[in-house]
Every structure is written in structure tokens, then in C-alpha cells.
Write a protein that binds this DNA or RNA. Sequence first.
DNA 1: CGTATAGGTTGAAACGTTTTTCAGTGCTGG
DNA 2: CCAGCACTGAAAAACGTTTCAACCTATACG
Lengths: 328, 328
Amino acid sequence: MSDVGIKDVAARAGVSPGTVSNVLNRPEKVSPATREKVEAAVRELGFVRHGSASTLRAGHSKTIGLSVIDIGNPFFTDVTAGVEEVASDLGYAVILSNSAGCRAKEERNLLVLAEQRVRGVLITPSDEDPARLDRLRERGISVVLVDHPAHRPDQCSVAVNDIGGGMTAVRHLLETGAKSIVYVTGPLTIRQCLDRRAGAERAFGRPLRVVEMGAMNPRAGQQAAEKLLGEGDLPDAVFCANDLLALGLMRGLTHAGVRVPDDVALMGYDDIDFAAASAVSLTSVRQPTHQLGRVATELLLDECDNPATHAHQQIMFQPELVVRESTR
Amino acid sequence: MSDVGIKDVAARAGVSPGTVSNVLNRPEKVSPATREKVEAAVRELGFVRHGSASTLRAGHSKTIGLSVIDIGNPFFTDVTAGVEEVASDLGYAVILSNSAGCRAKEERNLLVLAEQRVRGVLITPSDEDPARLDRLRERGISVVLVDHPAHRPDQCSVAVNDIGGGMTAVRHLLETGAKSIVYVTGPLTIRQCLDRRAGAERAFGRPLRVVEMGAMNPRAGQQAAEKLLGEGDLPDAVFCANDLLALGLMRGLTHAGVRVPDDVALMGYDDIDFAAASAVSLTSVRQPTHQLGRVATELLLDECDNPATHAHQQIMFQPELVVRESTR
DNA sequence: CGTATAGGTTGAAACGTTTTTCAGTGCTGG
DNA sequence: CCAGCACTGAAAAACGTTTCAACCTATACG
């Protein structure tokens, strides 16, 4: 329990505590000679700044909060990795919380973040209600929306064009000659699923046959395959709302003797690592996930560090078609 | 920037700040009537405790640190999810940091955690050097090793028996009739890779042919397939150090016309979700990842909250064989 | 009726920084 | 040679909570 404070360092270096603080926070304000002395004392004593004291007095912390919907989904994992990278580079700590799609848990987590006096929050909101986030902002905590476009100009957000992505996907399927297309999706309460369908139908020109599953994992995909097979008439192509569904579906079809892409073309969404690695590699729509996390964090920290010059931005990335074997 | 402090609450409720603090921290010490009044004031004013002030005075925080090697690997993601669950339930915040296998970054991250005065640290160490962790412990920060057995009795750890896992894997392959077996692995500087090989060779009775790759992802697995095919003589079975390698390998083999499991049996390790979802479902060795995270966190928080009664434990989980199509 | 006792509450000190004001020092230029 | 200046560093006052000793006010008991 080594308890070296700024005072001990000051004593050792023969200066005042204030000077030590200056060396730590505004090194240019202090003469090279004293700075050197202080730095030596810091090293010798193994001094580590007490973040809480610092936060308390300075009025702001070096931490940001990150609230995601499902830490288990590779999509969010990639985003998280991007966030961590940027934050860590700038000396910020990231407090991770997982809402698991549960509103109450999200609420609790946001409270914890508020107590910790995080500098700002990156959040993939689990619903559209903006009230909670407004309450954070009233407390002086900046908020940046991740994978969710902000509908207001006083708010930063980073998202990917899901409508465009849906269009791209179906356009590609049409080009490969598909006449009948099924959309396999997770719960249509999820904005992403809805938007991708909207885009898909716009490209298709009329409503698509939809198979809606309760989850968006491989298991659900396999069940979707059984459902499709059970109904009898297989479409030329299937567009899945994410890769996990698509991979499960592919397995289900393959097992029933249906060949991909010869009998049914298949595409996913997200372009997770496993999309390229599956037996028949999966055509998908790639989202710049890592970038999403990086840019969101940069926006947030800019908003925190330069509140004067900061301009709120609603950034919309364009997804990218990645053609592989499952549609050839 | 609502700035409601404990004093404002006290004023509103007509009591002293000390009493408010008692209501917050030791409700049983205060009479129901006053408690009620104070709670009402808290609600009305929207008071949120200032975590830093609290930490500063009380001497300990409500945060723990989690340092993992690769946040992108589903194994660690699962562990992280388990950690977050338990911590969040007990009101602790989790500070996430990703060492990305880089020693320097791990060092920097640990410094940040020390500055934040986290209550304890969960870490998957990127190397064997215990000095860094001892320095943390000197500072009064408890440390629990995750996926890494502690070799000392004064230290908690949670790990999975990788030697046993390796034995199980090879024993199973031998039972399916394999005579020649290749071990495809990531860098043999990684303890897990080494231990699994040790176990595998113990079950095999003599050294295995080893293909060592630089990474442990699907791409590396595919390269391993090319290497294997290039060398000419295919083994009866391949044991991969993780599922990512195995999935990549499966793809590589399948593309070259080699059938799994008819020509070559294949097993992975970790039993990630995709193992069951691949075209030919993958036999694997399941690790209780989620549980790993949960138990590690419980140990850590027990050590923090009940230092008197806490008994250090080195827990070793046993992995479990999951047989699927790739070895039938 | 007075005193011990216990439960509830108060008030002020303390936690380790940052920040601001202020004093001291050595220099420059008139 | 002195006034004024630039620059360093010191001292003390915050920041918002927790904690602890002291202080009440009833109640119970002798």
C-alpha cells in the first residue's frame, strides 16, 4: 500500500506541491532544471497520480463510458476495439457496459457512468427514447450515438447507411439473375433490420417475402433454413440481415442437400471474419466497424477537449459490397 | 451542468450532510423517518453521488480493471461478458483495456488503471513476468489472473486445464482411428499453445508433427492448409490450437478437394459459436469462458470486500469434448 | 427523581489534487 | 544605479464526499 503523494514528491525534489502539479500538467510552465528534479523524484518514489483527487479538483475525468447492446456480437466487439484504441492513445480509460438489449440495465449502467463522472458517453441506444441521454447532457456529459443516426443537429452521431446497404445487397442479387428473393431477419423492432429491409425492397421494387426470427445468431439462421425448406418453394436467393444468420442458414441448406450458390444464392451483412472463412465463402456487406468506433471516439473527445471549436457532426458511412462464392 | 451536492440534499431534507451520507452508505444506521425524507430529497433534486469525491475520501473505488490480450477474439469477448455481468450486478464499473499482445501497451494500461485507483484488476497476462503485478499489489490493488494459473499461493487465478484439453482432443482422435496426427498452432510462445501441445503429445505417446503459424485466425488456418497440402503427405487427423485456425484450415482443405472428416478428421479448440455453424460442424474442446469471467470477478470482489476472510484460490476448470461432424 | 444507556444526528476534519494569487529573484534598459 | 519586467515557485483555498468523536434526547432502571 505505497502511499506516495504529490507532497512526498515535492519534499523529495525540494519544491512545493504546486510545482509538482505544474510539472505533471503544464510542463512548459516550469524551468527545465526543476522539471528534471521533479521528474527524478517521481521516478524514484514510484509516484502515481491519484485520479480521483485530480478529477475532483479539476472537475473532469479522464474516462469515457461505452454502452453497447451486445458485447458478444463481433460487430460491437470490433467497434469496441476501435474505441479502446483511440481512447487509450489519448490517455483515456474506457468504462465498458453492456445493456444486453435490456432497457433497465442500460439505465443502471448510465447511472454508474454518471457517478463516475465520465467525460462523455458513447452509446448504441437500445431504443429511440432521447430523454435519458438528455439527462446526461444536462449533467455536462457529452454523448455520441454509435451505429444510430442522430436526428438533431446538437448531437454527434456515427452510423452506417443501412438503407443503402440493403439496396446494394438486393441489387447485387438481381444482377446475378435472382428473380425471387427472401429476406431473413432478426426482430423487426431493431432499426437496422428495418432499414435494411426498406433498402432491399426499394431495390427490389416491391415487398419481399420476409422470414423474421427472434434472434440473430447461427442457431436462428439454421431454424430459418428449416422454415424455408418446410415451406417448399425455395427462392433463387436469400438476403440475411447479418452474417450470423447467413452462416446458420448456409449450414441448414447445405445439410438438406441444397447447394449454395448453385441452387440458392446467399448473402449476409457485416462481413465478419468468419464470412470469408466459411466453407463456401459468404458474400456480404461490409461495414467499417473498427472505423465506426475510432471516429465516434474522436468526435467525443474533440467535443470534450475543444468545446469552443467543436462542431457537431452526424456522420454516415457507406457500406461496401464484398462479393464471394455464395453468390457466384 | 446540474451541480447537486450532498449538502443541497441535506438542506432540502433538513438534516446534516453526514446523515445524507449515512443514508447512502449505511441506511440501517438511520431512522426510517429521516431516511424517507432524505430519499425524497435525493429523488427531487436528481442527486447523483460524485464517485471521485467518494473514492478520494473513502480510499477505495467502485471500479475494477480488465486487461485482455485480444478483445477481438470471441474467447475473450465471452470472458468479458461474464465479467461485466457480475461486476455490474454488484454496482462495480469495469474499465476495459486491450493489451493487443503488446507488452508496452499492457504496461501503459496498467498505469492508467493504477491512476484510476481501481479496486482490483483482472488480467490475462501477456507474459510470465510477475513483477508488474507485484507492483500493483503493493499499491493495494488486488489482482486475479484469468486464463492463466497462478504459481503462488498468495494469488487468485482462474484457468482451464489446457494440458488436459490437449490430451482429450488427441485421445478422441485416436479413438476415431487416426494414426498420424498434426498439431496446427499459433506462436509457441503462448502458454496455451504450449500446454495443449504438451497434453496432445502425452496422449499420443510421442512428439507430434507441428505446424506453427504466426497468428491464430482463419487466415492463418487457411495458410496452414496450403502448407500441409504442399508438403504432400496428409495426416489422418489435424488438431488445431483454436477454432479460428480450424475453420480456416477446413476451408483450405475443402477447397483443395480434401473431404472432412472422410479424408482428414479435424478438431478445434474453444468451441466458439461458429464451430457448430460451419458447413461441416467442428468437433472442439469447450471451455467455460463465460464462467471463467464470472468466477474470476467473484473472486476479485470477494478479495476486495472481505479481505479478512478471503482465501486465495487457484481454480482450474476442466474443458469438455464436444463431438461433431468433423471427426465422424 | 436522577443517572446510565442506547440510538440518532451533527459538525468539522480529512482525503490528494489543482488552481489562483502573490512574493521573490535576477535582468534589462534608461 | 534604480525602476520595471519577465519568470519561477510558494502558499493556501478549494473540490464533494466520508468518517469519527461528540452531542442530544428519550427511555429504562435503580
